[in-house]
Design a protein around this nucleic acid. Sequence first.
DNA 1: GTTAGCACTCTGGCATGGAGAGTGCTAACC
DNA 2: GGTTAGCACTCTCCATGCCAGAGTGCTAAC
Lengths: 354, 354
Amino acid sequence: MARRIRRSTGPLDRRANAILRAVIDEYVSSAIPVGSLALVERYGLGVSSATVRNILAELELSGLLTHPHTSAGRIPTDEGYRWYVESIIDSALMPEVEQLMIRHQFGQIEYANEHWFRLAASTIASVTRAAGIATPAKPSATQVRRVDLVEINDRLASLVVVLREGTIKQVLINIEVGTTQESLTEVAAALNSIVDGRTAAEISRAIARFGSTSPLADVVRRVADRIVVLLREYDTASVEEVFSDGLLNVMGAPEFAHSDKLRRVFSALENRAYLGELVEAVAASGDVQVFIGHENVPDDMREVALVLAPYGQPGRAVGVVGVLGPTRMAYPQAIGTVRFVSGLMNELVDHLYA
Amino acid sequence: MARRIRRSTGPLDRRANAILRAVIDEYVSSAIPVGSLALVERYGLGVSSATVRNILAELELSGLLTHPHTSAGRIPTDEGYRWYVESIIDSALMPEVEQLMIRHQFGQIEYANEHWFRLAASTIASVTRAAGIATPAKPSATQVRRVDLVEINDRLASLVVVLREGTIKQVLINIEVGTTQESLTEVAAALNSIVDGRTAAEISRAIARFGSTSPLADVVRRVADRIVVLLREYDTASVEEVFSDGLLNVMGAPEFAHSDKLRRVFSALENRAYLGELVEAVAASGDVQVFIGHENVPDDMREVALVLAPYGQPGRAVGVVGVLGPTRMAYPQAIGTVRFVSGLMNELVDHLYA
DNA sequence: GTTAGCACTCTGGCATGGAGAGTGCTAACC
DNA sequence: GGTTAGCACTCTCCATGCCAGAGTGCTAAC
C-alpha cells in the first residue's frame, strides 16, 4: 500500500499560500528551480523579492519546498505537491471542448468493449502529455453467460466462454478423432444448461451433482472442469492487464534525460504486484487518488506520480484509469482528465449492466 | 522496404577475416572501441600489433570498420556487421539446453493460442537480453468458422465470431427491447448456415442472394453486414498487433545511455507502417532476415538492428517473431534464438491446420 | 611481408577562474 | 512589527588549459 505523508505544519496564511502555488505552477511549466525575483516579476505579488525570500524560507522550514543547492531557486517537495493537490483535487475539471472531443472518440468504439480501456489510456496520454494507464474492468466473481464448442480440426476444438458482461475467454481443447461438430454442439448445449449465470465455485458444485448417463457425460464433465480452471485463473489474477500508452511523453521530460532514471520508471511499470495493490486501493476508495513520489512504496517509483481513478460498478466489475508522470506534473489537468474519463467509462460499463 | 547495402570489396583473406571477426566479437561484448594491442593480447593471432594495425587500416578502407576519432580503437560499420551476419547466418543454432527450456515453457500454454505470440516475444527477450517482438499469425483471407449471439441485457448482445484457426472476434450489437435469447439463437443458426467457411467477400455475396422472408431476415442481414465490416477491418490491417517485451534490456545498453537516442528507438517501435512492411517482406522470404542500422529506412531506426523470422503457413496465416537491439548485438545468438522460436511457432500453428 | 620504434593526435579527467543567479543576513524604513 | 534595500556569500555553469593515456600511422630495419 502507498503510505501518505502528513505535512506537519498548520494552515498557511494567504500570502504563503499564493507563493507556494506560484512556485509550483512555475516549476511545473519550466522545470527550472524558481527564484524570488522571477516570482515577483511574473506573478503580481505586490511585495519585494526580499519579502518573498522570507516566505520561501518559511515554506522550506515547513518542508513544502526545498533547495537543490545554496544558490539555486526553490523546488517543491513531495509534501509541497501533496498540499497543492489537496487544495485543487475537488475542483479540477476538464475544459468542455476537450470533453466533447473525447466523447466523440469513445462514441466511435462504443461497441468494441474489449478496447474501451485501451482507448481510455491513449486518450489520457494524449490530453495530459504524460503516460496514460488503464486496466480492463474485472468482474469480482466471474459469471458465465454461455459456452460454445467449435471444431477446428479432427483433434482440436475451440472452447469459447462468454462472460456475463460480454467479454470472452477462449482456449483450445483436445477432442477425440472423429468427434463431429454435432456432438460438440450437443455437449455445449448440456454445458449451457449447467453454467449459465454461474461462477466457478457454483459450476464446480453443479458438476459434482451432474449425474447424466448419456455417452457424452464424460466429455461434458471434462470441459466443465476446464471452464472452472479458466475462471479460477481469471478470478485470482489481481490485475489482468495494465495497458499503457504515451510512454514517449514521459521520456521527453528533462528529469528523465538520463536513461538510468527512465529505466527505473519502466521497471516500475512492470511491477504488477504494486500496481495491483494500488488498483484495489483505488477501487475501494471510489474517487480519484494521487500518489506522489516517495508516497509510493517501491523505490523505482520515487520520482514519479500517479493519478488514478476507478470505474465500473463497485462489487460487480471495476477497473482503473490513470496518469503516470514525473512528480512535476500538471496535477489540475491530470486530475480533471482522469476524473472525466473514469466517468465516461462508468457510463459505458453501466450500459452492459443496464 | 529495407535497402540492403552491398559491400564493395571482394572476398577477404583468412587473416583479415579472423581479425574482423575478433573486432566484432570484442566490441559486441565490451562496447569499447577495439585497439590493435587488445586484439593481439586477447586473441592469439600470432602477429604483432603493427601488422594488425595494417590490416585494420585495410578493413577500414573497404568500409567494414571505422574510427570514432584518430586515437581510438576500431568499431564495426553496419557493413561490417552485415559481412559478419552473412558469414554466420546459416550456422547459428541455439544450445540444446535452452531449446529444451523453451519447449517446456511453450508446452505449458499449448492450449492458449491467443497467447502464443506473446510468449514468443517474452522468451526471445529473456534469452537474448534484448527486446523481443512478435505479431500474431494473421490469416490472409479470414474465414469464419462459426457465429454466436449472446444476450447481455435487454438492449445489448455480444456478437462472437470464431475464425477458422480458432481465434475470436467480438463486438457488442444493439438489439430491440424484448428480443429473447431464443430468437438470437435462431438468428445465429441462420447466420451459421450462411457464413461457415466463408470470407468477407463471400459472405457479402451470399447475403445479397439471401431471400428469406422469415420475420428475422432483416436482423440476419444486419448482423451479417456487421460481420463483414469486422472481417474487412481485420483483413486490411497490415499488422494487427506488435507485441514487444524486454524493452528494459535495450534501455541498459550504453549506446542508449542518453534518453534522446532511446526515445527514437521507442518511437521507431510505434512506427507500425514500417514494421508492417518488414513483416510482409520477411513472411515472403520464408527465412530469418537481419536488418542492420541504416539498412532500415526510418531515421529513428538507424541505431538498431532487427532479426526477424516468419512463422505459420505461407498463403494461409503468417506472423513474425524477432529481436530488436542495438546494432552492437550478439547476432549468432539472436539469429539462433529467433530461428528456433519461429520453428516452434510453426509446429503450434501446424496443429491448428492439421 | 613483418615488425620495432616513434612522433602525432585525440579523448577524458581535472584543476582554474570568472560570470551569473540566488540566497540569507543586517540595518534602515514605514 | 512587518517590509525592504543592500551586500557579502555560495554554488553552479561554462570556458579554458593542461596532462596522461590510448591508439594510430609512418618509417626504417629485419
